[in-house]
Structures are given as structure tokens and as C-alpha cells.
Amino acid sequence: MALLEIRNLAVEFATARGRFRAVDGVDMTVEAGEVLGVVGESGSGKSVSMLAAMGLIGWPGKVTADVLRFDGTDLLSVSPRQRRKLVGKDMAMIFQEPMTSLNPCYPVGWQIAEALRAHHAVPKERVQHRVIELLEQVGIPDPSRRAGNFPHQMSGGMNQRVMIAMAIACKPRLLIADEPTTALDVTIQKQILDLLVDLQRQHGMGLVLITHDMGVVAETAGRVQVMYAGQMVEQQATDGLFNTPRHPYTAALLDALPERAIGRHRLPTIPGTVPGIDDRPAGCLFSPRCKFATARCAAEAPVPQAGVRCHTPLDDAGAPR
């Protein structure tokens, strides 16, 4: 049984100009012990779909899905109280901005202890000990002293380590990392990623790594899903995705990587921008920017087939079929 199973997930926000679909028909399956990369531009709905899975979409957002199941529990029908028993314990999440994701009013050790206490993860008298242990595990030097520090007394990298310690405090089976390294220096990025992958292997967790960095995906993920404008456009094993992308959007993204454009005069780009609330095309959402788009693409929305949402998926040579 899959750890996390999502079918036809949609998230809508009521805005002053009508309803906006931030996520539209996303399917996703995460197996235990697997690293799944989710890539896409800003605003492609990567974070929102994962927040929806965690039950963190509040007013004015509205979540619908055919299936939203975690480890056999139907998340659509459970009571909020039951859901809170899963969230933070069996499924945990870390966020993009470590400096603002921790409460400035409490010491970091206290904030980790709160997660342990909320789920009765360890006996009361062991909480403090476990906090120190966790801080040590995520590589924070002098953990017993650091536990008493406030977030503003620590660097961004240290705070992200604290966030990770908090997320793994109750030994979750699924960890969702929402661009965990975006706000950090390059050297720190590498350390945090290594830490996440290490922890994932040690605990056999399922890890969903949301990122817009293709390099991060190539290094860590076993399987990749590509999102565009709230839709999942392609999913493949990492090797396959990098060697033979099937969706023109994925191919264009890979072409835009500087390391793949060595020797070229200019770095290839994707013309245009992601459609917003006012200019969503009738057919394929990527059709206005796609160099292979046909009349059918503009008129008719494709449905995912064999992991690709495209009327003319690319073949091994990169040409449309």
C-alpha cells in the first residue's frame, strides 16, 4: 500500500476576481522509503498541493480530491482531531524560510519539545533528553546550550536544522520538505540536503522534496514529478526524466539549465510567463509557450497518459510524436 496516495487533487482560492484554481487535478503516489522530487516554477502549485495533503490550507482555500489517503487513512473524511494525530507525527513538513518558520518568542528546544509533548512521543521526563538527542542528530554543535537559544540568535542554516529536528521528532513515515534550501547559502544548501537524505535512509521515511532546482532533484530523488500552472505535466524515474523528457515543458526546463548549455552563445529560455487567473488558455496550459503546439493543443486540454499530460509527447530523440 502506498504511503501517500492522491488522486485528482484540486485547491481553489476565492479571490476578489472569482475563484482561482491553484492546483488542478494532481495525482501523486509516494511509497515508503522513497524520495520523490516535485519540481516546477514558482506558483506552479507544488507547495499548495503538499499543504493540502497536510491539511494546512485554511480559509479562503478549498480542497477537493477523489482520493487523499495517508497510509490507509482517508484524509478527506477524518475528523480534524484525528487528522491532528497524524499531522506532525506520522507526516511532517519543513518549510522554505527557516528564519520566519520558527516562533520568535520561544527557545528552539522548547519548540521541539512541544512537538514531542503534543504526540506523547516520549515519556515526560525524557523530553528534554530527546530534544538534545535530536539537535545532535541534525548536526547542531553544543546542543544542550543551543536548545535554550531563540531563533533570532541562530543562523538560517541552524534554524533549518532545528526545523528538521522538529519534523523528525516523532519519527514520521513521510517527510515533506518544501524548498528546504531555497533561503540558504549554497554551501549550507548542500549540508541540509545531505542531512535530509541521510535521515531519510536511516529512518526509511518517504521523502517528498519540493524544489525548483533541477540539480537538487538529480542528486537526491528516485522519481520526479513536474508541475506547471497547478497541473502535473510529467512523472518519471529521475534518470529517464533527465535523459528522455517526454513533456515539452520538461525538455525546455532542462534545456534552460546553464550546465547543459555549455558552448552555446545564449542560454535557452522559455518565452512568455505562466498563465495567471485571467489568461488561462482553453486547451493545454503550456500551449502558448510550447514550440511544438498544434491547433489541437490550443483547443483541447490533454489528459495524463503514461505519466505525461501532452497531446504530442516527445520521443527518445526529443521530437514530437
Partner: peptide
């Protein structure tokens, strides 16, 4: 953001409101 973190811990709405937000 830290309110979202508090919710992601699985805390009750009351605790998020009083301990994390009101403080």
C-alpha cells in the same frame, strides 16, 4: 510562517491561537 509550523505540528487550534499567535 510560524503559525503554519505550529499547525503542521498537529497542535490544537486553541493552542495555536493562544500559545503561538496571542503570545
Amino acid at each position: 510562517d510560524y503559525i503554519r509550523t505550529a499547525r503542521a505540528k498537529g497542535l490544537s487550534g486553541m493552542r495555536v491561537t493562544v500559545v503561538h499567535a496571542l503570545r
